[in-house]
């Protein structure tokens, strides 16, 4: 279980994370959803020992992150937002160095296995510089999985990938949720949070504004959206709790009214008045 308690981090006058508290149950895929600058990466950096919080606590499986960083590092894997592979080393060398740093035993077998999971085994002896963005993201994931950590952090795992490759990445991420592994994802992609996460925390300006399953979040604000253009050409959206309410509203509306199911972007707009993307 992961507990985040009253976590705060500021950079100068900017509050990147502002009194953040939530709990993540073991074995779930937990998503932190929000626009750029919402505080998602800063939160992940504090949970993975890269950034020291100003105040508050992070506890992973009963161990305090600030008080016992070495113990935490033995239990977590992290895929950062940016590619931090050694570009001039091969895929195998990257995993080998990482495995040594994390005391991985039966190294060769586990590297082979990790590379096969992400479909890069046939490129194991290629220099990383020649890899596409998608291949580099997959290799980062293989590297994080190598020590078989019980907790895995993925910071924007499919950022910059085209839709088809992104879906492949999602399939691999779903597979990582084995043996009770807890997976924490940050994303600003609505579809990614909806497709992968058991629970979603919505962040805005460093604060948690909602936390629930994707379905419950949508139910809370309304499962259906009625959209139409007003006289000024501005898109108007009305949230409705059910299909009947949506059709009733649409009947009284003007031409060009559409009804669709709500998504997490609608939840974010309803709660903050702003858009994620």
């Amino acid at each position: 279980m992961i507990e985040v308690i009253n976590l705060c981090k500021s950079y100068g006058k900017i509050k990147a994370v502002d009194d953040l508290s939530f709990t993540i149950n073991q074995g779930e895929i937990f998503g932190l959803l929000g626009p750029n600058g919402a505080g998602k990466t800063t939160t992940i950096k504090m949970l993975t020992t890269l950034t020291k919080p100003d105040s508050g606590r992070c506890i992973i499986n009963g161990i305090d992150v600030v008080d016992h960083p070495l113990e935490i590092k033995r239990r977590i894997g992290a895929v950062p937002q940016e590619n931090n592979l050694e570009r001039e080393l091969t895929a195998y060398e990257n995993l080998h160095i990482y495995g040594m740093l994390h005391n991985v035993t039966e190294m060769k077998e586990k590297i082979d296995e990790a590379l096969k999971v992400v479909d890069l085994w046939d490129r194991r002896d290629s220099i990383v510089t020649g890899f596409s963005g998608g291949m580099q993201r997959r290799l980062l994931l293989a590297r994080a999985l190598l020590p078989e950590p019980p907790v895995l952090f993925l910071d924007e795992p499919s950022i910059g990938l085209d839709p088809q490759i992104r879906r492949q990445m999602w399939d691999i991420i779903r597979k990582t949720k084995i043996d009770g592994r807890t997976v924490i994802i940050t994303t600003h992609y609505i579809e990614e949070a909806a497709a992968l996460c058991d629970t979603v925390g919505i962040l805005s300006k460093g604060r948690l504004i909602a936390l629930d399953t994707p379905q419950n979040l949508k139910t809370t604000v309304g499962e259906y959206v009625v959209e139409f253009l007003n006289d000024d050409g501005k898109l108007i959206q009305r949230m409705c709790q059910d299909n009947d309410e949506a059709h009733e509203l649409a009947r009284h509306g003007e031409d060009g009214v559409t009804i669709r199911k709500s998504n997490l972007e609608d939840v974010f707009v309803k709660l903050t008045g702003e858009r994620i993307g």
């Binding site: 890269l50 590092k73 740093l101």
Partner: peptide, 14 residues
């Protein structure tokens, strides 16, 4: 720039 140093910081070594 390359952020590869962070791999060492996040490893369980002193």
């Amino acid at each position: 720039y390359f952020k590869t140093f962070q791999v060492f910081i996040q490893a369980p070594i002193s």
